[in-house]
Amino acid sequence: MTIDVRLPTVLRQHAGGQAIVQAEGSSIGEVLVDLSRQFPTMSDQLLTEKGELHKFVNVYVNDDDVRYLDKLDTKVEDGDVVSILPAVAGGDG
């Protein structure tokens, strides 16, 4: 299925400046692999050589961080929105 993926400013340069792109897959892992196929220079920004999520990447399905769901096995369905955000220093409340 086709999923909308929202990219942060820092990754848009790898996707011709687009803020939202489409990718195929039924899990987060499949969606990220498809993104890497479409935009090869984005690949090493998303996944490590071992195929794990890059340390400084947070991926969300409908605002929930997949690290606390089923990680790369987290399922996605039609209508879900996937967002990628870099891990940065947070504010301090």
Binding site: V10, Q45, F56, V57, S83, P86, A87, V88, A89
Partner: peptide, 21 residues
């Protein structure tokens, strides 16, 4: 709960500039 901070941090050159406390 976190804000979408990374969305607006445009000083970030690439993800390796990321930060985890």
């Amino acid at each position: 709960v976190e804000p979408p901070a990374g969305e607006v941090v445009d000083g970030l050159r690439n993800l390796d500039d990321g930060y985890i406390p």
